[in-house]
Write a protein that binds this DNA or RNA. Sequence first.
DNA 1: GTTTAAAGGAGAAAAATTATCTATAATCTT
DNA 2: AAGATTATAGATAATTTTTCTCCTTTAAAC
Lengths: 133, 133
Amino acid sequence: MNNYTQMLRNHNLKATPQRLAIVDMLYMHGHMSIDALYEVMIKRFSSISLATIYKNINLMLENTFIQEVKLPNFKSVYELTKESHSHTMCEKCGKINDINLDLDAIVNTASTLKNFEITKADLVLSGVCKNCV
Amino acid sequence: MNNYTQMLRNHNLKATPQRLAIVDMLYMHGHMSIDALYEVMIKRFSSISLATIYKNINLMLENTFIQEVKLPNFKSVYELTKESHSHTMCEKCGKINDINLDLDAIVNTASTLKNFEITKADLVLSGVCKNCV
DNA sequence: GTTTAAAGGAGAAAAATTATCTATAATCTT
DNA sequence: AAGATTATAGATAATTTTTCTCCTTTAAAC
Ligand SMILES: [Mn+2]
Ligand SMILES: [Mn+2]
Ligand SMILES: [Zn+2]
Ligand SMILES: [Zn+2]
């Protein structure tokens, strides 16, 4: 029994081949849209239903096994849940990368400024990556 | 000829009553989803088509007359374009507020760290507002 | 191996968004 | 101000995206 199998079961999800493949794809590609995921999944499971992708993505979201990343002007992408982090997105090539930034100061400022209890900070930095300048 | 009329024309948009109302609603409410906008618009224009809302929102987005704000777990909202700013969103009552935070330090750090030319920073702080604690 | 509860696939259905068409209204031209 | 020009609104169809239903298959438990 491999890694992902245990991870899925820990989240009350049966470890089906389709799910293991989804996890595998997300692990390999990092951030994937529904469409991109379906495209790679159909190669492994020629008869997989798009509904299966949606159902699993939604289930995994509910179980916080994965996270949705909303991007300006683009479709959402999904990734395996890991420590909170921010993202960069290249507007030319569309490449999305993780970036660890210390947002504590900002969050604290905001919290006191607005008397607001902050539980999550979603930051997307858009621009042009080094390969696209 | 009022304010909005001129603003719309400056963006190559004819100042129709429907558009003026959309601008007015966004000005009054701040951040609105497509549905919320349609709901208030139908009160003023009983026969307005949802397609008109979509067409105008998309046109105004193209002309950067308005901006889309993508929110975790919720539908996008739209607002009149103003100076770049961040948002807080209460997960209890759904209230969205503007907040001006100095992200320069963060942006610069990210830029040098990843050799990435940043043109835009979208930050949404989720949590619980003072009215909902 | 048998049981059972969950998941997959096919396709229908629903929801969201966009496109097409025509009458009308906003702006431009005189 | 009147007429010409062009973009827009609204009705509706079409398309796209997402969810649901139903039945079969399969993973997990015993
Ligand atoms: Mn990430
Ligand atoms: Mn705002
Ligand atoms: Zn790039
Ligand atoms: Zn609240």
